[in-house]
Amino acid sequence: MKNLIYFVIAILTVKSHSQNKNFIDQPYVETTSKADTLIIPDRIYLNIVISEKDTRGKISLEELETKMINKLNSIGIDLKKQLSLSDLSSNFKKYFLKQQEVQKAKLFNLLVFDAKTAGLVIQKLEEENISNIYLEKTEYSKIEQLKLELKSLAVKKAIKNAEYLVKPFNLKVGEAMFISDIDVNITNLNYGRNSAIQIRGIASLREYGSEAENKEIEFEKIKVSAEVGVKFKLEK
């Protein structure tokens, strides 16, 4: 029985070695390629803080909340889908603590779909003395599909690279022998995470590339790249 087991193992080992040897012995060309693009985020998450402290107690929290809701309604925000009440996170606790007194405040999460609306939200809420607005994160809703498309583009680019590499040798690129999905990278400071950036008033919008006079705001574009490695057979 032991001899049979050893025999089977020996066959598998020889077969595996033979396959590897055949792969290595074949003439091939190997290349890596990258495809990338810049996209505008279409999901912008803002944290809105309302507090009686900001009006020195002249306006109650309930009044501020009503004013905020009315302003958001006036610019077409779908409150049921885009606005939610959040517990005060650790990032905001210090803001509400002064001389051991807890300030009466609320934290809301707001989702908007473009920078223009984000700027309008900031402008309209500032008119009601609500200027503590934080950029939580930015996202792109079709990121997974974009990753796949970039991988496909990178493979096509790898074919071109291989063709140019072998052209001086009067050789042709054959079928792919091996394809490696090397890396997908997303470059954006605020993508998918809490960036702890505070937006206070229209004047500070310049740091986001805005024009103070028209009160527009821009967010950093998201750079997405995909890299692949491919081995091609060589043909005469």
Rank of each mutant, 00 (worst) to 15 (best):
K156H: 02
A118K: 06
N170E: 14
V173D: 13
Q99A: 05
Q123R: 10
N129Q: 05
E144D: 11
F169R: 09
Q100N: 08
I159L: 05
A118H: 03
N129A: 07
L135A: 02
E127G: 04
K137S: 13
V155L: 04
L171Q: 09
E136H: 13
I159F: 09
F113Q: 06
V166L: 07
N132V: 00
K104F: 02
V112E: 08
L110S: 05
L107F: 01
S152L: 12
F169E: 14
K104C: 04
S152G: 10
V121H: 00
L120Y: 14
I130N: 00
K116A: 10
V112D: 08
E144K: 15
E136L: 15
K116D: 12
Q99F: 06
N129K: 04
K124S: 13
L153V: 01
E101P: 02
Y164A: 09
Q99T: 15
L135W: 07
I143D: 14
E144V: 14
L148W: 08
L125K: 01
Q99G: 12
F113N: 10
Q103I: 06
V166N: 03
S141F: 12
E149T: 14
E163Q: 02
Y164H: 03
K124G: 02
K151F: 15
G119N: 04
V173R: 15
K104R: 10
T117G: 09
A158Q: 04
Q145C: 12
I122N: 00
N129H: 08
K151M: 08
S141C: 11
N129M: 09
K160T: 02
K160H: 02
V155F: 04
E144C: 10
K157C: 09
F169S: 07
E128T: 10
E136I: 06
L125M: 03
L111Q: 14
K172Q: 10
I159A: 06
L120E: 06
K160R: 01
V121W: 00
N170V: 13
F113M: 11
S152I: 08
I122E: 03
V155H: 01
F169A: 12
A115N: 14
S131V: 01
L165N: 05
K104E: 11
V166I: 15
V112T: 05
V121L: 01
